[in-house]
Structure formats: C-alpha cells, structure tokens
Nucleic acid binder design. Structure first.
Lengths: 216, 216
DNA sequence: GCTCGTTTCAAACACTTGTTTCAATCAATT
DNA sequence: AATTGATTGAAACAAGTGTTTGAAACGAGC
C-alpha cells in the first residue's frame, strides 16, 4: 500500500509503479521516476520485470488484489435477506471505488485500465469482474419475480454498477459542479444508502408492473 | 467529423488530432502520426497551433462543439410532460455518449479529458456540463413532490447520469462480459428505454415514500 | 577466507519525441 | 510578369525515453 524501507526492491518498485501509473498513465510515466520513488536503480526494472510493460501489468494486478482484500463482501447465510445482500453489495462496491477522503490510487489505476484497456483488462474481467457480476445477478434474481427476463436483470445490474462507478470516474466533474461543503457531504454512507434506496425502489416497481410505461 | 481533401490544412489537423488523441491519449499520440493522417507537414502544428498542447485543447473544444450540435435536446413547450422531458434527456444523453455502432471518437476524447483533467476540463464543466445538469435538476423537480430536498434531487440526477455514462466508460468490460450477440443487442433505443423506466420507477416510488427503507 | 549466485550501480546505447529552421512553393495583387 | 505574404517541405536539433551493459557490492554456504 505504501512504500517502506522494509520491503524488497521488487515490492517497492511495484508499489511505486502503481502509484505513478495511476497518476500519470502508462505513457506519462517514466521508469526513472518509478525507480527514484522506489529508491532503486533504473536497471532493476529490467532485472525484475523484463520491461516497462510487464511491470505495468504486475502493478495493475497487485493493486486489484489489494483492493479486493481490503474490502471483501460480508459473509451471508441462508437467512440473509436479499435486500440486505443488495445493500451490502452496493456499500462494498462504493467503498472499493471511493474509500477514504478520495479515490485511492488503486481504483485510479483500475479506472485507467478500463478506459485504456491493455492485456491486463481481459484477465481482470475473467478473474474478478465476472464473478462479482454474477453475484449481483443472483441477488437481483432473488429480488425479482420469476418472469423477469435475463436481459432485464442484466440491464438492472448495469444501472446499479453505473451508479456506483459514477462517483469515481466523474469525480473531477462533481468537484467542479458542487460547492466544497456539498462535495464533502458525499460520504460513502450517504451514497450507498441512496443508490440502494433508488435501485430497490425501481426494482420493486418494475417487478410489479414489468413495463412501467414511460411517456414516449 | 471526417477528413476530406476539401478541408483546410488546419481543419484536417484538428480533426486528425481529435481522432488520434481520443484513441491513444495525449502522451500516446505523436505529432508525426497526426500530420501523417492529416496529410500535412510536421511543421504545420507549430505554424497553426504553436505547440502540441494548444492543438490538444483546440481538438477537445471542437469535438465538444460538434457533439452538442449533432445531438441537441428537442424543443419543449409548456404542454410537454415532465416524463417526456426526462425520456428525451436520457435518450439524448445516451445518444451523445453512444451514437452509431460504438462510441465515436468525440465522446472518447471527452471521456479522456474527464479521466485526466487538463485546463480544458474546468471550462467544459462551466460552459456545458453545468447547464445540462441544471436542466436535469429542473425536470426532476417537476417529477418530485415539493418536500424532496435538493440533496436528494442531486443524488437522483447523479444516478441517472451515472447509468448513461456507464455504457461508455465501461464499454471494454461490457464487451468482455457479454457474448457478441448480447453486446450487439444493446442499442441506443433499448438502453434509453431501460434507464428511463428504471429511473422513473425509482423516482415515483421514492417520491411516494421518501424513505423506502432499504434493509440495512 | 573464499566462492558463487544474486543484486545493485553508473554509464552508455539506440531510438523517439516535440520543436525549430530556412529554403521552396503557392496564390493573390499589382 | 513581378512582388509579396502566406503556406508547405525536408532536414536537423536538443532533450528525454526504454533498454542494455559490464563491473562492483553483497551474502549465504562451505
């Protein structure tokens, strides 16, 4: 997470790389900057990772592993309400994307990877995003009536995930749009509650009347 | 929009720059590539724009102007239903972000600017994003009961905008998540309809019972 | 104490980058 | 046709890039 002198050179480089890649992107980052922050020699990148590209992939994967471990989904048993599961899922998602005062460099790095997909993106989807998405789909299945089509469930899942991710990728815009006080009031708790309320309300109403009939 | 031999050298460069900046970002783009696609000499960048940075700002602003002109909000009169306005707003938003088979380079460029804000970002928020946001807030005011707080309206607006933008910035992930047929079925019409239905259902239910009481 | 594999270091290499230069070319005006 | 200013062109420049090199320093095992 942060660089200490106790870490090995390889670990220090991976961490420093993640931080700088997150801030400036792949092309905007130089291996000299990374090694300077890591307190290592330039040749160490070649020695430990082969080249800059493989160091990047390693940094992205490590950042992702850390984020997942840091904010795991709570354990559910057979008695857990589906509504509670959805609230937990959303709260965890928002926390992963918006922990602490602002977004950490972990999620910034992930976001960059999604906006500018490299080799790391496909593997990330397969190993982590897809399982998470399946969990959400299962929760939505429990919350909806039987006859709701899979297409609709998927779109609903996208609506929920979209709301959560918005607060990360649109952060600079939100900052410009709101006053300082308004911005600071957007804490994880309030956002999670709103997204859960909003989504649950929509699910319940749509489930009751499959086509609510928007004016159009 | 696309480069033709009838355009002036300056116009061809601006367009080519927008396309390549959108695809590879500022640092990943070389002025040599831009000038090659524009069929111009390298020195033309310095001659017309001064340097690469000012060419970038010009390209971003032009792309934004084009996108707005290409997909304007429809004209509403006093009789237009608020529900219709919301549907129009969402459909226009989705179209701007996802016109044609995929996202055009216009919106890609805008997204990059939001993810990696430069000088162009703040001005963009002031001149365009804020007015659009106010329009959405006004629509939501009309749709909600009097006692709904401004904070709630804002969060609702974020929920709607987040759903729309999701299909742009998460596009590579969606592609990996769905099969080809499923992905191709996500046309602008279906997405707009779903987001409108979903949001309208949530607004109506939340407006009826301000705290729907999510389990948590 | 010596050896051998691992790790670190300063320096250099090969290449690409944005930018500049200045002569050649073009197009309109006289 | 000549002139003048705007535009284009090929080449070069200076700075920075990722990568490589080969020797020095280190550390555990004998």
């Amino acid at each position: 997470m942060s660089i200490t002198e106790h870490d090995t050179t390889k670990e220090r480089i991976t961490t420093a790389a993640g931080e700088i890649f997150a801030e400036r992107g792949f092309d905007g980052t130089t291996v000299r900057d990374i090694c300077q922050r890591a307190g290592a020699n330039i040749a160490a990148v070649n020695y430990y990772f082969g080249d800059k590209q493989r160091l990047y992939v390693e940094a992205v994967c490590q950042a992702h592993r850390w984020r997942m471990e840091q904010f795991p989904l709570p354990a559910w048993d057979g008695n857990t309400l589906s509504e509670t599961k959805l609230a937990d899922f959303i709260a965890t998602f928002v926390r992963r994307v918006r922990s602490g005062p602002g977004a950490t460099w972990h999620s910034k790095l992930m976001m960059r990877e999604m906006a500018n997909p490299t080799a790391a993106c496909a593997e990330l989807v397969q190993s982590s995003i897809r399982p998470q998405f399946e969990i959400l789909l299962q929760i939505l299945r429990e919350l909806s009536s039987e006859e709701v089509a899979l297409d609709t469930l998927r779109l609903t899942a996208f609506s929920i995930v979209g709301q959560c991710l918005f607060y990360h990728f649109a952060d600079p815009v939100i900052r410009n749009l709101l006053s300082d006080d308004e911005y600071k009031s957007l804490d994880v708790e309030q956002l999670s509650t709103h997204i859960t309320d909003f989504s649950l309300a929509a699910i319940r109403r749509l489930s009751r009347a499959p086509r609510a009939g928007a004016a159009r």
